[in-house]
Each structure stands twice: as C-alpha cells, then as structure tokens.
Design a protein around this nucleic acid. Structure first.
Lengths: 339, 339
DNA sequence: GAAAAATATGTCGACGTTGTCATGCGTCTG
DNA sequence: CAGACGCATGACAACGTCGACATATTTTTC
C-alpha cells in the first residue's frame, strides 16, 4: 500500500513535510507543496485513518446503536440525518443494531470500544423510554427519539409529540369539528400518552365535553407482534348514530384502516368524515386518496441535531445534559374538510 | 487508555503473551492464560482495532454505499441483513449514502479507501441498473439489488422479479381470473419491465388474449418526484363495462390507491375485485383490510447473501463474478377470491 | 551588520499490535 | 546421555502517522 513514505520518496522530501501538506499546515513553500501534491495524485495516496487514530488517539468516529431498524421504516431518516451531518463534518459512522436483544447490545458496546469511538448515538425507532446498558463504559452518549429510564442524566433529543397532537387537534377544532374520534397508539410507545394528553387537553380547552370524544385503543402488545384493533375501532366509531365528523388516527399507518373502514361504510373523505394521521410517513400519507393531513415527525432533524449535540458533548462544551425537543410540523393535505 | 502493555505489566508477562491469549493462540499454559484473562477483565482492556489493522493491513471492515436510504423505507432490510451477517462474522460495517449525487459517491470511495476497507457492498434501494464510479479504485465490490450498466463484470445479487410476478399471475389464473388489470411500476425501475414481461408471458401461456388484459402506467418520472396516475388508472379500469376481476398492482404502495379506488366505486375486496401487490412492504400489506396478497422481495436475504458473497470474493475463493438471483416468495393473504 | 524573529525542512520516537526470531526448559529417542 | 524435539515465553521490529524538537535558511529589527 502506498504510504506517506512512498510519497515523500517520490517528491524528494521528508515524510514530515508530506504530512504537513496533507494537513494543510503552514511553513511549506508553494513549490514544495505542489511537488508533494503531484506525487500524492500520481501515486493515488490516501491517508490511513487507522494510523492517524493510533497516533492521535481520536478516532473521529461516532457509533450509532439502534434497536429495530426495519420495523418502523420511516425512522431511518434519523440515520440519514446523522450520516449527512457526519459527512459534512468529516466524521465516520459505525452502525449497529440490537434487534432488541440486550446481549447484542453489550457486544456492540464492546465493538465500539475496540474502535475507540468518540461518542455514541443511541437511537430508537419508536419514541420510547429505554434502559440502555451504558454507564460502565463511559463513552459520551446522546439519546435520540428516546429518553433514559433511570435518573442517569444523558442528553437526549425527542420529537414534541404533545405539540404535534395539539396542533392537529386545534386544526380540526378551528375547522368546526366538535365530535372527534381518537384511535390510540400502542400504549407502550411514549408518543401514545403524549398525543392523547394533548388531544384531551386541547379539546377540553375548547369546551368539548368527554361525551363529544370517542377514544378507542388501536393497537397493543409487543413491538412487531401487536394486536390490531384499528379497523374494528374505526368501524364502530363511524357506526354510532352521533358519529364523529373527524377522526384522529394514532399514526399514518393506522390511518389506512380508518380510510378503508370509512369507505366500506360508504362515507366519503373528507366530505362525510375528516381524517388526520401522525408521523407523515410519506409512503402512506402521499399514497392515500385524498392525501393525508398529518403532523411530520422531525426524524431527519433529530438525527442532524443529535449528531451536532453529541459533537459538542464530546468537545466538552456541553456541560449539563440538556434534553431538547423538536417540533412536529403540521402538513396540510386534503383529508380534512371545514364544516 | 489501557493497552496490551498495561495488561502485560499487571499479569507479569510479556505483551506478546497477552497477544497470544487474546487471539487464542496455542502454547500458553492454562495458568498463564488465566492470569492474563483476569488482568484483562480487571483493567477492562479492549483490543484496539486501529492498531491491529495497521499491523495486519486488513481492516476486517466492509463498506456499504447506498443511494436513497429513506425513500424506499422497506429496503433498509438489505442493510439489516448485511449488519447481521457482519455481526455474526466479526466484521465491521461502515455505511454511507450518496443521496444520488455522484460527487458524494467519489467522496465516499475516498473515505472507504482511507479506512482501508476490505470490500464494498454497493446497494440500491430500488432494483435498477447503475453506473458506479468504481473500477479505478480496485476494491472488491458486490452489487446488491442492482446490476452494473457497463460490461464491467461485478458480482451481483438481485431479486427475481420475473419469478415473483409469474407466481402471482399464476396464482390469479389458477383461481379462475381471466380478466386481469395491471398497473405498471415506474419504467425507470428494473422491476417494472421484468414484472410486466412475466405477467404478459404467463397470461399468454394460459391462453389469455391481449384483450383480456388492461395494462396502465401507474407512475413515471424521477425517483422522489414521480407523477402518480395510480388512482386514476385503477378507477378507469374498474369502470369498464367488462371490468377485470383482479388487478395486479406494481407494488404494495400503489395497491393502497387501488383499494381506495375500488371502494370508492362501491366494490368489495375480494368479492368484487381481487387485488395483489408486490414487495410485501408490511407497513402497507398488513395494514390494508383485507390484508394484501403479495410477493415478498427478499431484501433481508439479499443483504445476508451479498455480505457472504463479498466475503468470498475478498478471500479470493470466488473467481468468476457470479450473478445470483433470489426468489420472491408469494405471501398469501386475503385480498384474492376464487371465482 | 549583528541579533532576533520568522520561515522552511528534517530527525526521531511513540501510538498499540502482532509477526519473526530467539531463548529456555523439559521430554523423548536411540 | 547427547542430540532432537515440543512447548512456553520473551525481545524486537515494523506497520503509517504526526508531535516534539532540532536545524537550516531567510527576513526583520534596531
């Protein structure tokens, strides 16, 4: 392999001078610099990161540890956000996923240590509370889309489920809806409670009574093996004599079933019933007809900011573990009518 | 940082002996081995990969270079397959995505080189033909879910779109369907042609005439900014006086619109019209009511086998660049009725 | 015009690991 | 019992890079 030494030989300088050119250090004549650069090009030299790391004991690498990569396909945007940040800032990303198994998690931490990772981004594919196997290792860590269960103060970045659900609820209320159905997310997800709270609070503030709301559980059970009541719940809701004029679906995926339930009853969307989702999972929200009004989870931004935050933690500039929150923007499409 | 030297000091042996214990080499007394292992545990020593690599000039790392990670969310299963293989075989994965930009691609190859990657997995999120910026670099490469445009002989692994579509078509024919609609994928996707060919050939073999088939384009245009005709096409098809009894949708995502179009016309699924998809994108296929019969793209397997194949290429045991294909298994659910 | 400062380049060692070779010791062979 | 052999261990160098320090050359300063 071509190393700094071979370049030095060809350029007729010492290897230190080559090193200087590579790292853009001062005190190199323009002429020497050109000669070295030409040698680098001719030989196709590329610096060896491993050697660099060994020398500087900084790997410039972040690790991503994720739980279920594939089950919530849309949240890979978090990963994309991280990667884009890394790319722009010259960091390398090492990625691993646990599949939910904690033995895997331990193995991955070991692997990260052996690569002398500078920091870890602990990412979950659902917004939830976790109990990571960290602590004993002592690598700076930022949690993305989740928060630690224990009192361990780890910085985290999460979506603002509450604000998103509040905005969606307001959106419906402002358009005159006074009978609203709500289909709840799986309660094991952190978003479930936050979104429902926001819905309850916002409708209450607006003067709606409990009897104006129909709230049903859409899913329950462990991730990947949930029981699904969405279709039945939506059907039941829409068959009430005083049926809701709008339904808030726990997320976009569940909204598919709400659409189908409504249509099977001969109801038109949005003329007879308005529907909103949550997540802006575009594979769904843009495929539905009419397209779905929803609140977008800021996945990409979570990744971007998470990486940024980790960077400042590693650099030591972030002293107290801050917990940030990112807003869920309402995406207005065509599934809601004004009454 | 605790290194092999500190361990040696604590255990009272030379660093070479520690190295022997770590690598499970023979010629170490049981007693010494234990002493060393205890020291390793006590100090929390973890081997430094960078140093190892520099010494052995093998990084034991594979790179993944992917195009659009997030736009086809389900195909992240490819990545999961690769990671699982890597995890099981002690390899590290470096991942980067181009977002479709070829300047990015060049940058990524440089990055891979600087990490002295052993091999590269070139992954596309849609099954398509690509023209990668490889070749000049000389890193062993395996293509997953795509094939090279040029005559460059690179080993590749692809899904068998043809077989999947053939099986789906047969499935419909065997259940008595003789008028079948087909909504085509975006023609820029390799699967589009393969699936359509299989559909045409299989219906032809069965004796159906062209007039028994209604074939419409569902989408076209660049990835991420397609024009979407699916709903209109499905609606038109189903309004024909001699309407098809079954519709094959180019993929599951498009099937959502076929469902909605059918229901909007008051047709029941599957009693009035049967529908099949393609991909088994479970977020959709399991959310639809009735659940969607489809052909599963073997994404996870592609990743697993791709990594395996790359490994043998790197090891030099794979001489001729083989092009493998993996079958798309039919997943029978409830969206098709027998006539 | 000599001393001080700035610029340009080189030498050397260290990072953590492992391959090569050497050494020491006990056991077997004839 | 001498030589050969197997086993257990250690000394040392090298991988590629860069920081610390040294040296050489030019420019500035008073």
């Amino acid at each position: 392999m071509v190393s700094i030494v071979s370049v030095a030989k060809v350029a007729g300088v010492s290897n230190k001078t080559v090193s200087r050119v590579i790292n853009g250090e001062p005190y190199v004549t323009e002429e020497t610099r050109e000669r070295v650069e030409r040698a680098i090009r001719d030989l196709g030299y590329v610096p060896n990161m491993a050697a660099r790391q060994i020398r500087s004991s900084r790997s410039n690498t972040f690790g991503i540890i994720a739980d279920y990569v594939s089950t919530t396909p849309y949240s890979v945007d978090i990963v994309r956000g991280i990667q884009d940040w890394a790319n722009a800032n010259g960091k390398t990303i090492l990625m691993a996923n646990t599949g939910g198994a904690s033995e895997q998690e331990i193995k991955i931490w070991k692997m990260f240590q052996s690569h002398r990772i500078d920091g870890v981004l602990y990412v979950t594919m659902y917004h939830r509370i976790v109990d990571p196997e960290i602590g004993d290792v002592g690598i700076p860590t930022v949690m993305i889309n989740c928060r630690p269960q224990t009192s361990e103060l780890l910085p985290s970045i999460e979506p603002d489920d509450y604000q998103g659900a509040r905005d969606l609820t307001r959106y419906l209320l402002e358009r005159g809806h006074r009978k609203i159905g709500y289909i709840r997310l799986n309660p094991i997800l952190l978003g479930a409670e936050l979104r429902l709270d926001a819905f309850r609070k916002t409708t209450g503030d607006f003067g709606l009574a409990d009897s104006d709301l129909t709230i049903r559980l859409g899913m329950e059970g462990p991730v990947g093996a949930e029981k699904n009541y969405v279709f039945a719940a939506a059907t039941e809701m829409l068959q009430q004599k005083d049926r809701p004029t709008a339904i808030m679906s726990g997320n976009d995926e569940m909204a598919i079933q709400v659409y189908i339930a409504a249509m099977a009853l001969g109801l038109r969307i949005p003329e007879d019933v308005s529907i909103v989702g949550f997540d802006d999972f575009r594979t769904v929200s843009l495929a539905l007809r009419p397209e779905l009004t929803t609140a977008a989870l800021p996945y990409y931004g979570l990744g971007l900011q998470g990486a940024e935050l980790l960077n400042s933690v590693v650099a030591g500039s972030e002293v107290c573990p801050s917990s940030r929150v990112m807003s869920c923007n309402l995406v207005e499409r065509l599934s809601v009518s004004s009454l």
